[in-house]
Design a protein around this nucleic acid. Sequence first.
DNA 1: CACGAAGTTTGCGCAGGCGCAAGCTTTGGC
DNA 2: GCCAAAGCTTGCGCCTGCGCAAACTTCGTG
Lengths: 238, 238
Amino acid sequence: MKPDAHGKTLPRLDESLLTHLPPFARLERRSIRTILDQATSRRYEAGTAIFNEGDPAERFYMLLDGYVRVIRITPLGEQVTALHIPSGQLLGIARALGRDTYPATAMTASDAIALSWPTRLWDTFVTEYESFATETYKTLGHRVGEMNNRIVELATQQVEQRVANALLRLINQTGRKVSDGIEIDFPITRQDLSELTATTLHTASRLLSGWEKQGLVRSRRKRIVVLDPHALMLLSQG
Amino acid sequence: MKPDAHGKTLPRLDESLLTHLPPFARLERRSIRTILDQATSRRYEAGTAIFNEGDPAERFYMLLDGYVRVIRITPLGEQVTALHIPSGQLLGIARALGRDTYPATAMTASDAIALSWPTRLWDTFVTEYESFATETYKTLGHRVGEMNNRIVELATQQVEQRVANALLRLINQTGRKVSDGIEIDFPITRQDLSELTATTLHTASRLLSGWEKQGLVRSRRKRIVVLDPHALMLLSQG
DNA sequence: CACGAAGTTTGCGCAGGCGCAAGCTTTGGC
DNA sequence: GCCAAAGCTTGCGCCTGCGCAAACTTCGTG
């Protein structure tokens, strides 16, 4: 998280930032050094767009800390959340899909820190560092799988099931254990949840209220704690 | 379509099968020969599964003729169509996503012919033939884009708009000009259309009937002709 | 050419979930 | 400590689109 001072004028990024992340884990120290020296590090406040749908894909990113929502905006201005990305993953990898613009907007869901590299380095990374390529394509495969699941969900499930599923996915991906349950680790509003499940703010609110009365969840402003994942599980199948 | 006899006992596949297809278009004659000699060619009847969701990804395919629907089946047995693939495209390219099982079922929508190669050749193709890799990832990017669009559609549009959109997409991808309109080039039932748009057979039928009365489409059993694409366009935006 | 299977149409009733509206609570800034 | 803004809750009425059911048409097969 914190750049190492190293006694230099320009703070150098510490290698330990990357060594435990799948795309880089199997690389030699030297390679990682090279990669880091080409990287730019930046902090984003919650609710900032890292890049926008349609922009030329000038850079690609590694999210070091925080959460990012990948969203698309309809002609009528409605937002749809396509994906959540937790820290430790690459984003903005349009290049891996042969694109030269970003297909969606990346919006920080919490304060976040990301490294980035100019897109022209992408091909170098992929050819030079073999494990980088394979790990990246695995990530991609995983995301395609998620998208597929969302399509099936949207196509076949009722709102209540979709919201239950979304909560389960969120606590799996980004859950933090608390005394009596699992809390979603970043601020999330009813509105966010509704964009994630293709319903309205109102319906999402009603469902959460209902579940709270039944003791399945506890929620305050922008915070949701799941108390009984199993019960949600049952709801999500039903 | 038909293998060249060549006066040999084993018919050799003709190079012209591949030379005009993006992933192979820029390759040398020699490379194409090598690739073809490793390929297996096979014909599939309409409604056959080329491979099934969850199967180990033993081969990857190039669809030479016909149409394929990529479908997923829910725990309750409902089918959801994730994608349509026209001839000239690769399918079953799980490997490109770092997967070793197929993420969905590929079902022929019409009679079809496909070449296939064992998955172990995938890495060879990608490293050996550069344009193969880039073109393939472009295809992938395109499909991801389509999936994204479907998510947004399912999340925000009414049934009528979704069905209109689906028809438009189908005639764009697989349309064939006829005297008074554009016909979808493979047999498609109301049921198929409903699985594509996440609605019921009945609703799809009602919509088509309505449009037929207004002169927007003409349809018979398993066949749909779009007479007025522009009007559908308007509906799909609405 | 007759029969069964597959595909299609249409009517009717119901309900999930949305739109609208109003009021409430929490938070952060000054 | 107060106020505005952001977020949340809840009631009510309506409409889209589904479920169910029945009848009709087209096609393939023996």
